[in-house]
Design a protein around this nucleic acid. Structure first.
Length: 275
DNA sequence: AACTCATGCGAAT
DNA sequence: TTCGCCTGAGTTT
């Protein structure tokens, strides 16, 4: 289950594992079987990521492009042949399998896994806002969009046309760290607050890209500094507010709030984050 | 065994 | 604004 760092990690890992190699492609689950047949025996060229989107490029007559989006529940794992990538899962749920003698990758439950042409990749890129994980990102585009919206900063951070790759965890955490209430109208942020949010996204997401987990707690509030037990959420990291409803804030001790907004749960500290 | 929820998104209402 | 989809983990019957 992915925010942008997962897509970028997968792209790096897939390129390293399968790059320039002839691969076997199949679809045990069947939904990608026709396409897998077209890809069989082709050379895996490289994987690219933008926001939460993943593109796999296959070489030679004709060139093929696979567009993958994991959605809420999809996952893609890479390992060695014979290794059990999904310990509890059923083989017949594997939408896409890529393998060589040395490695295997399996994809389950993706929102999208489809063959596309180059125009789709271009369209996806132009529709997305700047991606904090890409060095070519232009944060000014996000700022310009924020200036002319009536929506809350909490809603805007989840809008991929404004910030590509940001999801529910980074939204909650970056707003807590900047002490900004998620209901604050986005257009009323000061430029210095926007810069702080953007720079923090770059830092947090880059760390997550390296470690494969989301850790957002400052040294000064670390378990050691605060004399509490380290705690990890399912995503594997330690955070201030995400999924900590009713638990004490690590900074002020008051219970963390949560509410449903646009179909997703938002988490914040009413005392630490000012409206 | 059944039910709920989840790092998401687009179509239908 | 709600609904549907895809799968797995955790919780409740």
């Amino acid at each position: 289950m992915p925010e942008g760092h997962v897509a970028h990690r997968l792209a790096n890992n897939l390129s390293k594992t399968f790059g320039s190699r002839i691969v076997q492609v199949s679809s045990p689950q069947g939904r990608f079987a026709t396409e897998a047949a077209e890809l069989r025996g082709k050379r895996f060229c490289e994987a690219e990521s933008v926001g939460k989107h993943l593109f796999l490029r296959f070489d030679a007559q004709p060139e093929s492009l696979v567009h993958i989006h994991l959605g809420l529940i999809g996952s893609l794992r890479i390992g060695k042949p014979g290794e059990t990538l999904f310990p509890t899962g059923n083989q017949s749920t594997t939408r896409l399998r890529i393998q060589t003698d040395a490695a295997i990758a399996e994809l389950r439950g993706p929102q999208w896994c489809r063959l596309v042409d180059e125009d789709v990749l271009t369209a996806v890129c132009t529709d997305l806002g700047p991606d904090p994980l890409r060095s070519d990102a232009d944060p000014q585009r996000a700022w310009d969009r924020m200036r002319k919206t009536q929506r809350s900063i909490g809603a805007v951070l989840m809008d991929q046309r404004v910030f590509a790759g940001v999801g529910n965890i980074f939204r909650a955490e970056v707003l807590f760290r900047a002490r900004i209430h998620p209901e604050r109208v986005a257009s009323q942020l000061h430029r210095r607050e926007f810069d702080e949010v953007w720079n923090d996204l770059v830092g947090l997401m880059s760390d997550a890209l390296v470690t494969g987990r989301i850790d957002t707690i400052d040294e000064s509030h670390s378990p050691t500094a605060m004399g509490r037990e380290p705690r990890q959420d399912r995503h594997g990291g330690e955070v201030y507010v995400y999924r900590r409803e009713n638990q004490p804030c690590f900074v002020c001790g008051r219970p963390i709030h949560a509410a449903q907004r646009d179909g997703r749960k938002v988490y914040w500290c009413e005392r630490c984050q000012r409206r």
